[in-house]
Design a protein around this nucleic acid. Structure first.
Lengths: 369, 369
DNA sequence: GCGCTTTCAGAAAGCGCTTTCTGGTAAGGT
DNA sequence: ACCTTACCAGAAAGCGCTTTCTGAAAGCGC
């Protein structure tokens, strides 16, 4: 089936099964009876070409089914690369999926192809992806989500990224701090968490627990600090902070540990409200709570952060701090690719979170009343 | 900051802000005091290079921070391209996200970069992505998820794909039929739906409704046919089929329409069990049911298909036919990239679905008892 | 009608690599 | 000591484009 026309004239044929070669610009030019230079100009519109020639070239290209070789184009042209790279932990995590979706939409509008790389939370993979994207001469590299704990890795990233930006590459990070000055889309984690805390206090809660992630991540520490701050305004402290992995199961495990502690403490000292620093963790927490027989929100209120689409479907639907995830992705790419004057300065876009009260939070002791 | 070393010798410098050029292989070769050919061989290990030279080249490459230009490599080499393309409707849909995640893992193991394209359900975009991926000379193109209703579009896809495979490109489709003979990963939709039907009948249900998608999609028609078949074995017919879009909101709308009908019919004639042809639709349906005050499963049982991770978190968790989504993605890439002998034949991998009974289904009339 | 600018097609020089091809040197055989 | 073989480094030819550069033809003013 694939055999097609072999090249029997050449004695040392590459492979037994001959593959039809790609149609080249030269072939198109020959077919149209013009020079390759003219064909290139006609196809790309980079210079004025006499009308009849232009038509002939286009007709020839169509007839032959010409597809330009992007590699050759990138190699020959100065900056013809039509790809951007995105690095995140895992596309199947709804948080990254939502942001990536925004990136893709924005990329599609610009006619760019997105190379998406999942690190599966391995720092080494992240760095190797950056260098692969560098090799691909991606126009921009977007780093989405929190970096890794290890300072050494961050340093390594910087040395990887630095020559890239020097060579004209654009870097933007979403929801992540970088020592290198790069474009940044940063949610207002602290303000958002503070607002959430205020809202929960407003509901009547006084005893709080937090399901936290790796404290080295600024996302975590900012949200934690913001939450504390919001509580402090009402003179309330944080009773408990339990750390877990930044995943659904991390939230589940953390909630179990929290429940274990709670079981040992007197009823009146137990937290009436739990804040999970991400929705993804909150999902796990909700499962753990339910398994343990705690009713949400009657026995305990639960809140998250991010507003990933999924939390609206939970029952009760999750109270959270809504972030415009899709547009954060769009912003990141717009930021990275914006035309720059001589004085290119890294820009930081801060996006606000909005507290959305849903069914997972209620007045404390709702179940006992 | 970006200024670095300009090139003051050249009078007509490209830009005001000089960008440090990339380090080339030639530079590495010069630094190591060898020829570019040797440098290439040393770096790629394509031929034996004297040990001291090899070390010198590697040292020079490290010192200079050499990153090979993938475009030049692809252009010069025969088949050095390290990218595969994936086209799906939307990465933020958990179904595609799960499959994509599998693709990425498999790609990562092979050192490949994935170019991921979301069509956002626009046929035109799908075709233009194929041609972009062709231009990129992607090693393989993976088409994930159902194609479009329009036969004309499918035809256009074929004419786009056909020269690609002739030129040695690999194509694999997941959960989609192709007129072109290409590698396929196909869930056993019919058998799965039939098994589900049997299980539901086993629970005691006799009156069923289906929330269906666009009937032109084989995924839909197969699942529908299978479900009918399973019911027929017990001498039961399908009371109602409501069509909706293949999305969460499509499921929601379809369920609302179903409820409208049900409200007009006598209680004893109302379906006791609803099957949504995809989990994503079932999520919407569950919301609609809940809004309407129907308790699941007491008043009505609900089942889906796919087992996307999210449905485990619902309450009640959704009964569904579980598909190994991640490994389907892995399979697809393995299939497409497998080494082929002379007789390359398109292969079809059928993956079975497993009925998973969860809380969303119960015995009929469970609420009245 | 002559020299001027302007317009536009083609020739040719790369872009940064890989991969023959070529040839020099060392190793091995007799 | 001579010839063959093996090994390995460098020269050079592209891969398929874009983009100068060059030059022919056409348009214009005087």
């Amino acid at each position: 089936m694939t055999s097609g026309r072999a090249t029997p004239d050449r004695p040392g044929a590459r492979r037994a099964v001959a593959a039809t070669a790609h149609v080249t610009l030269d072939a198109v030019a020959r077919e149209a009876g013009v020079s390759p230079a003219t064909a290139s100009r006609a196809l790309n519109g980079t210079a004025t070409v006499r009308d009849d020639l232009r038509k002939r070239v286009h007709a020839a290209a169509d007839r032959l089914g010409y597809i330009p070789n992007a590699h050759a184009q990138a190699l020959a042209g100065s900056a013809n690369n039509r790809t951007v790279g995105v690095i995140c932990h895992d596309v199947s995590d709804p948080y990254f999926a939502a942001i990536s979706s925004g990136v893709m939409r924005a990329a599609a509008e610009r006619g760019l192809l997105v190379m998406l790389a999942s690190t599966f939370r391995e720092p080494a993979r992240e760095i190797s992806y950056v260098s692969m994207l560098r090799a691909q001469r991606a126009r921009a590299i977007l780093l989405i989500g929190s970096g890794f704990q290890d300072r050494a890795w961050e340093r390594a990233m910087d040395t990887e990224l630095e020559p890239y930006v020097r060579a004209g590459g654009r870097v933007a990070v979403v929801s992540r701090h970088r020592s290198l000055r790069v474009d940044t889309v940063q949610p207002e984690n602290q303000a958002g968490a503070a607002a959430l805390a205020r809202a929960l206090v407003g509901l009547g809660h006084r005893r709080f627990a937090v399901l936290s992630g790796p404290p080295e991540l600024t996302t975590v520490s900012d949200r934690l600090a913001g939450f504390r701050e919001g509580l402090a305004e009402a003179g309330i402290g944080l009773d408990q902070v339990v750390e877990g992995a930044f995943t659904r199961d991390g939230g589940y495990e953390a909630a179990r540990r929290l429940l274990l502690c709670a079981a040992r403490s007197p009823y009146r000292a137990r937290p009436t409200c739990v804040f999970a620093v991400t929705d993804v963790m909150a999902v796990g927490a909700l499962a753990a709570l339910r398994e343990a027989g705690s009713r949400v929100p009657e026995d305990v209120s639960l809140a998250g952060f991010d507003d990933i689409p999924l939390v609206r479907e939970l029952s009760p639907p999750l109270t959270t701090v809504a972030l415009p995830l899709t547009s954060m992705g769009e912003n990141a790419i717009a930021l990275a690719l914006r035309e720059v004057g001589a004085g290119r300065r890294a820009r930081v876009v801060r996006v606000a979170g909005e507290v959305v009260l849903r069914g997972s939070t209620g007045v404390p002791g709702g179940g006992v009343r």
